[in-house]
Amino acid sequence: MNTVIHRAKTRGEANHGWLNSNHTFSFANYHNPERMNFGVLRVLNDDIVQKGMGFGTHPHKNMEIISIPLKGDLEHKDSIGNITVIKEGDVQILSAGTGVTHSEYNKNKDKKVEFLQIWVFPKTKNTVPRYDQISIKDIEKDNEFYQVLSPNKEEQGVWLNQDAWFHIGKFTKGTSDEYKIKKEGNGVYAFVLEGEVEINNEKLTPRDGYGIWDIASFKLKASENARVLLMEVPMHAGTF
C-alpha cells in the first residue's frame, strides 16, 4: 500500500478578485514539481466565483473536464452547441477530444458559486468532443458511496474517456463504508468536502486530499458528519 496526503492549507492559491481558486495540483502560476498529478488525475481546483462573474471563452483539447458545483449555479456554453446551467447537486463532464471552446459564469448576480473543476487525462486522444450532465439527487444515498461517473455510458453517472470511477458519500458521525477498487492498478484520491473522516487512522478535515494505491480496498469512517468525493483513476498517466 502507498499513500500521499495533501492538507488543505498546503494547496496553491490564486486570488483574482472575481475568482478565488485553490489548487491541489500544479496549475497556472502555481507550480510544485511534487504536486503535478495523481495518476491520470491532473487538476483538482476548488473555485469560488463572485456574483455574475466567470471564465470567458477558452479552448481545451484532449482532456476530460468534470465540474461539480457545491453551492450556487454555474452557466456553461460551448462550441458544440450546449447552453446549460449546472446546479448544486449536478455533475457535468466536457470531453474535449479534438478540441472545444467553452465559457463558465456564475449564473446569479446576488451570490457566489463554489465548484470543483477536475481534469483527467483521457484514455484515447482526438476523440469527438462530447458533453454529459446529471443530477445526483435521485441517486444519492446516506452512509455509503454512490457512483457519479464511470467509463461506461450504461452505468450510473456521467461517463468519460478513461478507466476512472468517481463516487460521493454523505456520512453521519460514526458510520463507515468500504470502497473496493474497480480496476487492478488504479488508485483512489479522496477529497473531503465537509466534516471529518479517517482513512487508515489518518484524520482528514475539509479540503484535505488523500491518495491511496497498491491496495484492493480500504475503509473510510466518519469522525464527524461528513461528505467525501472519491476519484478512482489509473496510476500511469501515459504520455501527453
Rank of each mutant, 00 (worst) to 15 (best):
N2C: 12
N2G: 07
R7K: 07
T10A: 10
R11L: 14
R11T: 03
G12W: 00
A14Q: 09
N15A: 12
W18T: 10
W18Y: 02
N20A: 11
S21Y: 11
H23L: 07
T24H: 06
F25S: 00
F27P: 04
N29L: 11
Y30W: 04
Y30R: 12
Y30H: 00
H31M: 01
F38H: 01
V43Y: 02
V43M: 01
V43W: 07
L44P: 04
L44G: 03
L44C: 08
N45M: 05
V49L: 08
G52H: 08
G52I: 12
M53H: 08
T57G: 04
M63H: 06
E64L: 15
I65Y: 09
S67Y: 14
S67Q: 03
P69K: 07
P69M: 05
K71P: 05
G72N: 02
L74W: 15
E75V: 14
K77M: 11
D78W: 02
S79G: 04
G81A: 00
G81N: 08
K87Y: 15
E88K: 07
G89I: 09
D90Q: 12
V91C: 10
V91L: 14
V91T: 13
Q92L: 15
Q92W: 14
I93Q: 13
S95I: 02
G99F: 11
G99R: 12
T101I: 07
E104I: 14
Y105N: 03
Y105E: 05
K109R: 15
K109A: 07
K111E: 13
K112F: 10
E114Q: 15
E114D: 15
F121M: 12
P122V: 01
T124D: 08
T127W: 06
R130E: 13
D132K: 03
I134D: 02
I134N: 02
I136M: 03
I136A: 01
K137Q: 12
K137W: 03
K141D: 06
E144Q: 14
Q147N: 00
Q147Y: 00
Q147E: 11
Q147V: 08
V148R: 08
E155Y: 04
L160Q: 06
D163S: 11
A164F: 00
H167G: 10
H167A: 09
I168H: 00
G169C: 02
G169R: 08
T172H: 04
T172S: 02
T175K: 14
K182C: 01
E184C: 10
N186E: 04
V188G: 00
F191D: 07
V192D: 07
E194D: 01
E194A: 09
G195K: 01
E196W: 11
E196G: 02
E198R: 11
N200T: 07
E202H: 12
L204S: 05
T205Y: 08
T205G: 10
T205C: 09
D208Y: 08
D208H: 02
G209T: 05
Y210S: 09
I212M: 06
I212K: 00
I212G: 00
D214Q: 11
L220F: 03
L220Y: 06
L220D: 08
E224Q: 07
E232L: 12
T239G: 11
